[in-house]
Design a protein around this nucleic acid. Structure first.
Lengths: 193, 193
DNA sequence: GTCTATACAACGATAGAC
DNA sequence: GTCTATCGTTGTATAGAC
């Protein structure tokens, strides 16, 4: 017999399913409480504030995303596939969830404050992307790995922002194709040298 | 002797300078009123609601942006330069204003509602981009013009989103380089056929 | 740990006078 | 057209009981 998740987990689930698709500021705490079937007092006992709940939900989400990305990198067979696995992971990640575009960029867009735990959670996503892409670009581009990593990160950002804009359609396909071209350009440049 | 701008214009100026850098929902009407030195009643007499003021500010901003983009396209000397003028216009546009990333995408991120005058203003930006890029891509890519236009739009979205993320740095430079690669790929493909 | 009830502040919008 | 003063609502957070 399946145990009902704790109030804390129900709140995080509600936060994840509503906050990043309907907007953080647009979603009152009451709605999260209703969906989680939790009283205000319990929520504030667990998290202390709405912002803290948001930050927690973001941290959990980053861990989830990291796992999905990891799995796709590990499943890839060569250097190029490992770098481009970012886009396959993105496609897979989106199939299983309800996100308009990107929880982290959406949060950054709503919260202009550059300090605090929410900003930190967003920065963690950016740091993860920058670090891993640089690492994955190394075997392909050598001396210009930083440039390639920058290009792939920009294309990734563009894929996410294209979901938000609603154009171009099939953003993952277009993004992957662009990233592939960038890889090809660096690969042939590295061969020439 | 310079006349003081009308209350209406002062409100639109205040909206533009604050709303899209600090966030729409995060900015109370009171702050716009203070900055514009206008009373609540006057504002509501002119616009009727905060949302209507936002929509008006977006419409004015789109017209401004369109003018800047136009000028850069006209100044360009060849097909490729005309298509890539998007990025030169973006760099010039940003030098003159205070925007965190993009007023239209930021508004879309905050307002999940798909109907209403605010959503319409955002959609107008997307429509302008899609239409013009397709037109500019035609002479370069011929039969695959739609694909090239999609790629440039995604890179443009990525450049804007990179401002928001704070990475990669020099997003306009990276974006322009990516768009240039996309053009080159289509040009050589068109020559082969 | 969890509840009900409520305090307190912020915000969007309006009334009525000039 | 513009002002001052204020209304009604919503939203975050807490008090106090169980």
């Amino acid at each position: 017999m399946p145990t009902r998740p704790s109030a804390r987990d129900r709140l995080l689930d509600a936060a994840e399913s509503v906050l990043f698709s309907s907007g953080i500021r647009a979603t009152p705490v009451d709605e999260l409480l209703r969906q989680a079937e939790v009283s205000p007092a319990t929520m504030y006992a667990h998290f202390g504030s709405k912002d803290a709940l948001v930050a927690q939900a973001l941290r959990r989400r980053l861990a989830d995303w990291q796992r999905v990305w990891d799995a796709h990198v590990l499943a890839a067979g060569d250097d190029t596939s490992r770098l481009l696995a970012l886009f396959d992971a993105l496609a897979a990640y989106r199939e299983d969830r309800t996100t308009r575009w990107c929880a982290f960029l959406a949060t950054a867009a709503e919260h202009t404050a550059q300090e605090g735990e929410i900003a930190d959670a967003v920065a963690a996503d950016t740091a993860l992307l920058a670090e891993r892409l640089l690492h994955l670009a190394g075997p392909i581009a050598g001396a210009t790995a930083q440039e390639l990593a920058d290009e792939v990160l920009l294309v990734y950002n563009g894929t996410l922002a294209s979901f938000l804009r609603g154009a171009p359609a099939s953003a993952v396909v277009v993004g992957r194709r662009l990233a592939e071209s960038a890889v090809e350009a660096h690969r042939s440049a590295a061969e020439r040298s």
